[in-house]
Write a protein that binds this DNA or RNA. Structure first.
Length: 179
DNA sequence: GTTGCGATTGGCT
DNA sequence: GCCAATCGCAACC
């Protein structure tokens, strides 16, 4: 069942936890249908330095200020598209970075978007719209979740230690092991 | 108008 | 473990 707006509008932490093990669904530009469980994700909110929106709204990050249930896609290192799911209320910037799916060749945020054919053109897609090519479906059961620090945000100082990376414990599809 | 760098990855030492 | 690739954008001047 496709996840609806009310699901994404709850507290960012609750939504993040509930998205671990949920199904990410995608119809690629060439028509291929993909459906796979989310094995790894990270939460970012405007209150901490790891978040793109820590210093406010900019042309790059404005999707994060939309109501939960939209996509936030940005280019990293000039090479890799990163897929985030906006969570929480409109006006409060928060999003979940999808880092790995239970699929071969999807163990990493950059590789994942390549396999799914997701680019910045998909930024601000409404995942709750009935005709969108990206959406989420409820998980079958609650997975055993492990938490650890987020990856690649050393510049965030003390906030880099927040245990806001959530994974399916002992999954074979993680970008890295948790500590 | 200019500059520095990043929520990464793959290849090489 | 180290490093290049590659470019939009944020933060300065």
């Amino acid at each position: 069942m496709r996840l609806l707006r009310e699901f994404f509008m709850r507290s960012p932490m609750d939504v993040a936890m509930d998205l671990v093990g949920a199904y990410l669904c995608r119809v690629t530009p060439d028509g291929t249908a993909i459906r796979a469980r989310i094995a790894e994700l990270e939460l970012y909110t405007q209150d901490e330095r790891g978040c793109h929106a820590f210093n406010g709204c900019t042309p790059r990050n404005d999707a994060m200020f939309m109501v939960g249930g939209h996509a936030y896609v940005y280019l990293c290192y000039g090479l890799h598209n990163m897929l985030n799911i906006v969570v929480g209320q409109k006006g409060y910037a928060a999003a979940v970075l999808i880092r790995a799916l239970e699929m071969p060749e999807c163990n990493g945020p950059g590789k994942l978007t390549t396999v799914l054919g997701i680019t910045r053109g998909d930024n601000k897609t409404d995942l709750c719209a009935g005709d969108s090519s990206i959406w989420l479906e409820v998980r079958d059961h609650t997975p055993d979740i492990a938490a650890g620090p987020r990856i690649g945000i050393d510049y965030a100082g003390a906030d880099a230690a927040l245990p806001w990376r959530f994974v399916i414990r002992d999954s074979d599809f993680l970008s890295r092991r948790v500590d």
